[in-house]
Amino acid sequence: MVLLELSDVHAGYGGGNVINGVSLTIEEGTVVSLLGRNGVGKTTTLRSIVGVISPDRGTVSFDSLDISGFEPHETYKQGISLVPEDRGIFPDLTVSENLRVPLVDTDDERSIAEIYGYFPKLEELQDSKGRNLSGGEQQMLAIGRALRQNPRLLLLDEPSEGLAPQIIEDVGRAIETIAEEGMTILVVEQNTKFALDISSHAYIMADGQIVMDGSTNELRDDEERLEKYLGVHET
């Protein structure tokens, strides 16, 4: 079943469009990545899904409901959780307080204990202030917090950014565990290797448009085009 579908989405800021006709679909229960160099419109695509900006043209539909123009709190209520690029941790709140911030429907929430199950490190740090966490810990907290409402779609904006290789592996494993339980995930990344490792399908963006897509296995073999759009050598 298609959970999220963007068709011909144009969006941007103050009249200028950053993305021009993005179309993509995400099947329920899969991990999909959206790759591209800095500034090609990946984050803008995420923002137009959650409603931080509304598309000038095109539609975003979620479980067959047209959610184009919804506000962030409305898409959240539909079951879309975003982990923003800056992670959005409240620096003055502790780890456990940060986890209690999201508005949850108690019938559907994942308990704090469940979140600690995915990220044992967070339990150790439960009384530490957000500001005292390392980048990796903040990333785990941000993902854990986004899981609180037991979302139907989890959006991750550059989860590996600024993290040490070892920590990236930890975060990647946690994402895989969550995915194995059936969570649908869209990962935006510049780290191609990391993204291809955790997802089954990938879309590649350049200049505000999707320029290629395919299964991660297919893409891995297409080194020439990966190099062209992403400027990386895959091994």
């Binding site: 709190h73 959240y76 911030v101 508005l103």
Partner: peptide, 17 residues
């Protein structure tokens, strides 16, 4: 206070600013 600090952040956690 959270909305005052960062409206988008708080609304992405389900609150209607």
């Amino acid at each position: 206070a959270g909305i005052n600090e960062n409206e988008t952040k708080v609304s992405s956690l389900g609150y209607d600013p």
